[in-house]
Amino acid sequence: MNNSYSKGLICCLLATLSWGAMFPVMTDALQYIDPFNFTTIRYAIAGLAFALILFYMEGKKGFNLKGERWGLAWLFGTFGFAGFGFLVFLGQHMAGPSGALTASIMMATMPMLGLLTIWLLKKNRPHASTFGFILMSFAGVLLVISNGSIAEIMNSPSNLTANLLLIAGALCWVLYTVGGSYFPHWSPVRYTTMTTLLGMISVAAIDVTLVLTGYISAPSISTVSIVMPHLLYMALIAGLMAVLCWNVGNKIITATNGVLFMDVVPVTAFIVSALSGVVPTSVQLLGAGITATALILNNLNQRKLAQAKLSVPAMATSRT
């Protein structure tokens, strides 16, 4: 495995580990502030940090959108930041005390959503083995969150609206991830920064509209100060570091492989919860092991498939 591909794997892993921890963090933050204002402030901080990084690395030309597909960048930014941020955390808030676990579980739908999206948009049908590894990783996730009792999850009452919001939010992030492939000449830093800044137009417009219509109230200074630790984590770790790592990683290993790492999110969320006193059972540890194994096997398989494709033209050339 070359260093570049290893870097892509590490970047995707770091991103998903950070996102796994953000759901327990949000559980506490949502006791004091609504998900809309929180998301707006979060991405305002992250967007400023991204802009400074882009200016340092690429200068003013990095912000030049003349001749660029800025409308498409705005659309993907809206999906990634307004869509994901608002829908997922609103769904988590509606799900109640179990919202962190519920939201993180729903993120495990991203690999399958990602494959279907890429198949639809790119007309690129994934290999059958890839579907198999995704099902394997999802099975591991189910073991972790159900402790082996799938029937208990199926029979427990659930908030349909919350779950639909969470799945819609997951789809938004898949679309944002795939969107990076439409800007192959942009660096990961530029794609991250420009989609964040353009997406913030939608985030701010929605938030202001909700405040003016009385659906939510503008947060007070005291409220913001209370959730400032949560904001710093969400903006700088789960936002700045994680989103940048995610875009770097997916540019290297492709979105088809990258979205599989989203199965790390619910496992991480469970582990963070376990640190607060919930001891994992042997079944749950087995599930985490299955998910990790699926990630490793899938990436080894993708490398094997890629090498097989390269060998076919080489053999054809040697016969001519």
Rank of each mutant, 00 (worst) to 15 (best):
M1S: 05
N3Y: 02
N3G: 01
Y5H: 10
L13P: 00
A15Y: 02
T16H: 01
S18F: 09
A21M: 09
F23A: 05
Q31R: 12
Q31E: 13
P35K: 06
N37Q: 07
N37H: 10
Y43D: 06
I45P: 08
A46E: 01
A49R: 00
A51C: 09
M57R: 15
G62V: 09
K66Q: 14
E68L: 06
R69Q: 15
R69I: 04
G80N: 07
A82C: 11
G85H: 14
V88E: 06
F89N: 13
F89Q: 04
G91N: 10
Q92Y: 07
H93G: 06
M94T: 08
S98Q: 09
A100T: 03
M106W: 05
A108T: 08
M112L: 15
L113R: 05
L116W: 01
T117M: 07
L120S: 02
L120H: 00
L121M: 08
K122A: 07
A128P: 01
G132R: 01
G132D: 01
L135R: 01
F138T: 08
V141Q: 05
L142P: 12
E152N: 14
E152L: 11
I153W: 15
M154Q: 13
S158H: 15
S158D: 05
A170P: 03
L171F: 12
G180L: 00
M194A: 09
T195D: 08
G199K: 05
G199I: 09
T209D: 00
L210A: 02
L212G: 01
G214Y: 11
A218F: 14
P219D: 10
S220L: 04
S222N: 10
S225W: 15
A235M: 13
L236F: 14
A238Q: 06
N250R: 08
I252D: 05
I252P: 05
T254R: 12
V267L: 14
F270N: 02
A274V: 10
V279L: 14
P280Q: 12
S282H: 13
S282E: 13
L285T: 04
G287Y: 03
T291A: 15
N299I: 15
Q307R: 15
K309L: 14
S311M: 14
P313I: 08
A316F: 09
